[in-house]
Amino acid sequence: MNTAVTRPIGRCNNLALRKAARYLGATYDKALASSGLRATQFSILQKLSAHGDMTISSLADMIAMDRTTMASNLKPLAREGLVTVEPSAADRRARIVSITPDGLSRMKAAFPLWEAMQTRFEEKFGAGAAARLRASLEAVLDTGFQPWAE
């Protein structure tokens, strides 16, 4: 007897989003490979270069990632000297993340690779469709769920 439930899976928002995210994430990882950065690492360095020093929690919120996963993602960047993670002078419990000159240099070197991938994606998917996709995905973040709330 087949007990599989298939109908809801076909309309599962989570599965559709994760499939697309894995597909596109692997595509960006491949495009950035020669820089020695993965797409998530590039995004972290880009946010730090644009916004300056911030706590791990603030950076995690900005990228929509839980704090523990962000801390794990920062470890290889810190080992390579691309970021520093130091206790906050104001609150010793908080950790401040900073991009180093080497991190800024690596992010700038990777930027043309990222930009080329952006262009390729928009040529295949359509610039307007890509803009609508980004807007829709941003709207998902405003649905009111609190996946990392304590």
Score class of each variant (00 low, 15 high):
A149G: 12
T100F: 09
K75V: 11
T84R: 01
M70W: 00
E80W: 04
A94I: 11
T119P: 10
A130W: 06
E86N: 08
M117R: 14
M70F: 02
T119N: 09
P101W: 04
G81K: 04
V97F: 12
Y23D: 13
A16S: 07
K124N: 13
R132N: 13
E86K: 08
L48D: 02
Q146P: 06
G103W: 15
A131N: 15
G144P: 01
A116T: 10
S49M: 10
L59K: 06
A89R: 03
F125A: 14
E150D: 15
Q146L: 11
R7I: 15
T84C: 00
Q146I: 06
L15S: 07
I44K: 00
L133E: 01
W114M: 15
A20G: 07
R106Y: 01
S98T: 13
D102V: 07
S58M: 05
T69H: 09
L48P: 12
A31Y: 14
Y28V: 14
K19A: 11
V83G: 01
T143W: 10
L24N: 07
G36T: 11
P112H: 04
M1Y: 08
R67N: 11
D142Q: 10
L32V: 15
S43I: 01
L45M: 05
L45D: 00
V140D: 05
Q118D: 11
F111T: 15
T68A: 05
G36H: 08
R120I: 01
Q118K: 09
R132G: 08
R93N: 07
S88E: 04
L48M: 05
A4Q: 15
R67F: 03
F145W: 14
T3N: 13
F111R: 13
G10W: 04
P8F: 03
T27P: 08
L113R: 11
R18D: 09
G144K: 01
I9M: 09
G52Y: 00
A60K: 03
F42H: 02
K30Q: 15
S88P: 01
H51A: 12
V85H: 01
G144N: 01
R92S: 08
L77S: 08
K75H: 09
L104V: 10
A64L: 02
T69E: 08
A116G: 08
N13G: 13
D91S: 12
K108F: 01
R7E: 15
G25K: 05
D66W: 01
